[in-house]
């Protein structure tokens, strides 16, 4: 089982879209995937068709009210969801003071998901308690980013954060970058991609997720792009991305 944190402290880079569609594509390819909605906004759950607002999720597991396994919702074949839950946004304040704050998620997950191939954590667009907990449990970091300068700047901050954790935990994360919401006609986007490739020549997944209106439309139907428009270009992109992820296919050759 591999735990993958989908992180970018910048908002609007396609974290939730990437998580929902990539996880579904991985599940469709036969992998057992559990995805944790670790963003208090709960939009991953909505993207996967779980629209109930008051159901508990990872929040109750972290508060030790229920086990994480009890909170799992099977949303697709091979794909399970652990929703955020209404208390996730206040989780830090609700935790007992004597609990080790950095290991709350790790404790909550326990070994319940050992039978899964992948556990994805869709992180909130912020720094703080939730991100720290995600990084403590993660084996791999998946970073969606767009082709604009502020995304590049956000990546710089994220890398600083990741390196601090690597130093503290005495380990190296496997890092993969997903270029999402990419506009092939924008020179700026290509220049950003070149800079990213310069610094991460073996860590940018080979398939670029191009900007597409269908990707913005499908969450409102509670569907992933593989369901909403299965033969579309973005659906094909995400299927390819899933293979990149599984086979370590990156730009500039294989790892």
């Amino acid at each position: 089982m591999k735990i993958v944190a989908v992180i970018n402290q910048k908002g609007g880079v396609g974290k939730t879209t990437t998580t929902a569609n990539l996880c579904h594509a991985l599940a469709e390819a036969g992998n057992k995937v559990t995805v944790i909605d670790f963003d208090p906004q709960g939009q991953l759950a909505i993207s996967l068709g779980v629209i109930a607002q008051d159901i508990g999720g990872i929040d109750d597991a972290m508060l030790e009210k229920k086990t994480a396994l009890q909170q799992v919702i099977r949303v697709r074949n091979n794909l399970a969801l652990l929703p955020a839950g209404p208390r996730l946004k206040d989780i830090e304040q609700l935790l007992a003071n004597d609990r080790p704050k950095g290991l709350v998620l790790k404790t909550a997950l326990g070994h319940y998901f050992a039978d899964q191939d992948f556990v994805f954590i869709d992180c909130p667009p912020s720094s703080g308690f939730l991100i720290a907990n995600a990084l403590v449990v993660a084996d791999q970091v998946l970073v969606p980013m767009t082709g604009d300068f502020l995304s590049l700047q956000g990546l710089s901050h994220l890398m600083a954060t990741i390196k601090r954790f690597e130093k503290a935990l005495k380990r190296k994360y496997k890092l993969a970058i997903v270029i999402s919401r990419f506009s092939t006609t924008r020179r700026m986007a290509r220049q950003v991609l070149n800079i990213v490739l310069t610094h991460f020549p073996q860590q940018v997944l080979a398939t670029i997720i191009r900007e597409a209106s269908a990707l913005a439309e499908c969450p409102s139907f509670g569907q992933t792009i593989l369901e909403y428009s299965p033969n579309s270009r973005p659906a094909s992109d995400f299927r390819d991305l899933a293979q990149d992820f599984l086979k370590d296919r990156v730009m500039y050759g294989s790892k």
Binding site: P100, K101, G128, V137
Partner: peptide, 28 residues
């Protein structure tokens, strides 16, 4: 070989963690 499992759970302790920076300082 070190991993997150090496963390001593009580090392995060009862310190009030108000933000990410404090947490990472704790980890460090």
């Amino acid at each position: 070989e070190a991993s997150a499992n090496d963390l001593q759970t009580d090392e995060f302790g009862a310190d009030s963690i108000d933000n990410f920076e404090e947490l990472t300082e704790d980890i460090t």
